[in-house]
């Protein structure tokens, strides 16, 4: 219920290739994080999975079924945006229930689903308010609640924490991790913050310039990076690179993590 497969997916805007052939498999129930420097195509890739951008070539499949030409609403996905993207004219309850209402779910069921999501995110006292009357953290919780209510096969998060202050960011990160545990759903999470990536992910996908550099568990990426880009990108403070020749070694570059140095 919710395994995602990308095979040779590409995306071009005119003559610019933004995504250059990505192959990826995200297992059911996995928490997968896309990281990479800005402009590497991680958000574009997420939007292609969501169906907000067309796929130029290649296949996107959920549970083996090709969804390239399916409208976003029909893909059984839910997305949480960086800017929350709540409907300003609807109350919290209606914001959360809109997708179900559009799908023709009976009112009582919508009520039950929104109440349940509200309880999970402690939003119950805010249900009749409008987004304008909420704080940033509350808005982000409503946006997450809106995603939960739909019971999607796939949760997509597009830098959901970037607009929150540091304290809230940590708290919401914990909340997302807890949600993932409770729901057991497949989640794909885009961020440029490697702390988020390292703490949340089962599987990290490091992207650079539209290509996957490495896929793996956080500690595998940290301890066994495939190339200097991944080695330099993961870990803070950054890994030190030395010219291997200077030490009389045969390979090109030698990387040493700061914590492995002793003075």
């Amino acid at each position: 219920m919710g395994a995602l497969t990308l095979s040779q997916v590409t995306k071009s805007f005119g003559s610019t290739d933004v995504i250059k052939g990505v192959d990826l498999r995200v297992e059911d129930g996995e928490f997968c994080v896309f990281v990479g420097p800005s402009g590497c195509g991680k958000s574009t890739l997420l939007r292609m999975i969501a169906g907000l951008e067309d796929v130029t070539s290649g296949d996107v499949a959920i549970d083996g079924a090709r969804i390239n030409d399916l409208a976003p609403a029909k893909r059984e996905i839910a997305m949480v945006f960086q800017s929350y993207a709540l409907y300003p004219h609807l109350t919290v309850r209606d914001n959360m229930g809109l997708a179900l209402k559009q799908a023709g779910v009976p009112k009582a069921e919508i009520q039950a689903a929104t109440d349940k999501a509200a309880a999970m995110l402690s939003l119950a006292p805010l249900m009749e308010r409008r987004p304008a009357e909420l704080s940033g953290g509350q808005r982000q919780r409503v946006a997450i609640g809106r995603a939960i209510v739909r019971r999607p096969k796939l949760f997509l998060f597009d830098e959901p924490l970037s607009n929150l202050d540091a304290a809230l960011r940590v708290q919401t990160r914990i909340e997302i991790a807890r949600l993932h545990r409770d729901l057991g759903a497949t989640m794909i999470y885009v961020t440029h913050d490697q702390v988020e990536a390292m703490t949340l992910a089962h599987k990290i996908v490091v992207l650079r310039a539209g290509k996957v550099e490495q896929v793996g568990r956080p500690m595998d990426l940290y301890n066994d990076p495939d190339n200097t880009f991944v080695a330099g990108f993961i870990g803070s403070p950054q890994m030190n690179f030395l010219k291997a020749g200077a030490l009389g070694l045969r390979s090109d570059t030698l990387g040493i993590r700061p914590e492995h140095l002793e003075i």
């Binding site: 939007r47 969501a50 169906g51 907000l52 409208a71 976003p72 609403a73 029909k74 996905i77 839910a78 997305m79 945006f81 960086q82 800017s83 929350y84 993207a85 709540l86 409907y87 809109l98 997708a99 559009q102 799908a103 809106r146 739909r150 597009d158």
Partner: peptide, 14 residues
């Protein structure tokens, strides 16, 4: 107008 808002609508089936 926020593109995210319109996209959220699309995902919700509007």
């Amino acid at each position: 107008v926020s593109a995210d808002l319109k996209n959220a609508g699309r995902i919700d089936g509007l």
